[in-house]
Measured scan of single mutants.
Amino acid sequence: MEVRTIKVFTTVDNINLHTQVVDMSMTYGQQFGPTYLDGADVTKIKPHNSHEGKTFYVLPNDDTLRVEAFEYYHTTDPSFLGRYMSALNHTKKWKYPQVNGLTSIKWADNNCYLATALLTLQQIELKFNPPALQDAYYRARAGEAANFCALILAYCNKTVGELGDVRETMSYLFQHANLDSCKRVLNVVCKTCGQQQTTLKGVEAVMYMGTLSYEQFKKGVQIPCTCGKQATKYLVQQESPFVMMSAPPAQYELKHGTFTCASEYTGNYQCGHYKHITSKETLYCIDGALLTKSSEYKGPITDVFYKENSYTTTIK
């Protein structure tokens, strides 16, 4: 009895394709271990004539594949690729409408935090270190965002349907971005203890939790000093293409032309909904596939993004 075979390709990165001759009487799992086709788990399936010449994702289970996976995804987590594939199996079914010149995501599976993050990423200057993220990001900007969303979920250790947080998501993504040249110098002034300067680099240099107003941050924000008295913390120097200011959701007025974009969060910790506000020729609110415009805006804002380049204080 002759062994019926077909020729397929296996890959971990969709760049390096490895030619395989597979036995049609055995499952993919018996031949390769966990195997995925377009995100779908085909591990328990036997090869079919229609699979001839198709590319299958496999887990990096030998040295060659491990090197290829690390170079593309910059992670050695053995569960990463499987999590990416199972997320992709959902995100490829989502709709990605162009809204006001940006790629958004039609609401499904509690994905409003991903839509808000995706919209924000198209408006701030950011370059990702893992080629996987950078490639998928370019495709997302062009309207094909399924891979990018699935990668975000995998890097953030999230599953489809789980509630997510924009600030946490951005923080994970910033860790995989090139923020080497970003720098922030802060000064804390206390009447009792004097003053202390701190220099922050990388992710810490672009994120701040405690106030939404970048102007206020430049002037000074009140913080408790270690001595128990009130101290003032203010920005001395900022070198970065953008800054992200966050605070627990509270009524906040966004003035046209003073910011790049913002995240609105309605609801409580267990259950809520994100919308995205962007400042173009007027203010726009993007909620999944829905767009509304207004000249002014007041609502429960939790993150505001500002364009920056270089700032030095005039406070002496």
Score class of each variant (00 low, 15 high):
residue 180 D to W: 06
residue 309 N to V: 13
residue 286 I to E: 00
residue 19 T to S: 14
residue 229 K to D: 15
residue 92 K to V: 09
residue 284 Y to W: 11
residue 190 C to G: 00
residue 138 Y to E: 15
residue 292 T to H: 14
residue 70 F to Q: 09
residue 241 P to M: 03
residue 132 A to V: 04
residue 312 T to Q: 12
residue 224 P to G: 08
residue 277 I to K: 01
residue 110 N to L: 04
residue 275 K to T: 15
residue 65 L to H: 08
residue 169 T to F: 02
residue 240 S to A: 06
residue 180 D to V: 07
residue 312 T to K: 08
residue 166 V to W: 03
residue 162 E to S: 08
residue 236 V to Y: 08
residue 254 L to D: 01
residue 134 Q to S: 10
residue 144 E to F: 08
residue 150 A to G: 05
residue 18 H to C: 07
residue 128 F to Y: 08
residue 112 C to Y: 03
residue 315 I to S: 15
residue 64 T to C: 15
residue 144 E to V: 07
residue 306 Y to Q: 03
residue 77 D to N: 08
residue 90 H to L: 13
residue 117 A to M: 04
residue 279 S to V: 06
residue 227 C to V: 00
residue 176 H to F: 12
residue 204 E to T: 07
residue 99 V to Q: 08
residue 264 E to S: 09
residue 89 N to A: 12
residue 287 D to I: 04
residue 152 I to F: 00
residue 161 G to C: 05
residue 46 K to M: 15
residue 149 C to P: 03
residue 142 A to V: 13
residue 196 Q to N: 11
residue 301 I to P: 00
residue 262 A to W: 02
residue 9 F to P: 04
residue 97 P to K: 11
residue 152 I to L: 08
residue 252 Y to V: 13
residue 273 H to Y: 00
residue 276 H to A: 00
residue 254 L to N: 02
residue 150 A to Y: 00
residue 202 G to N: 05
residue 273 H to N: 00
residue 119 L to T: 02
residue 207 M to P: 04
residue 243 V to N: 00
residue 27 T to G: 08
residue 245 M to Y: 00
residue 48 H to M: 12
residue 171 S to M: 13
residue 257 G to T: 04
residue 132 A to G: 07
residue 23 D to F: 11
residue 112 C to G: 02
residue 18 H to S: 06
residue 242 F to E: 01
residue 284 Y to M: 13
residue 186 L to F: 14
residue 101 G to Y: 04
residue 228 G to A: 01
residue 295 S to V: 11
residue 237 Q to T: 13
residue 274 Y to G: 00
residue 70 F to L: 15
residue 52 E to L: 11
residue 143 G to P: 03
residue 137 Y to V: 07
residue 81 L to E: 07
residue 4 R to P: 14
residue 248 P to I: 06
residue 81 L to H: 08
residue 103 T to G: 04
residue 50 S to I: 13
residue 168 E to F: 05
residue 308 E to F: 08
residue 244 M to S: 00
residue 60 P to M: 06
residue 3 V to Y: 13
residue 213 S to I: 01
residue 249 P to R: 00
residue 3 V to T: 12
residue 193 C to S: 03
residue 102 L to R: 05
residue 228 G to C: 00
residue 145 A to V: 03
residue 5 T to C: 14
residue 264 E to I: 14
residue 256 H to Q: 13
residue 257 G to V: 02
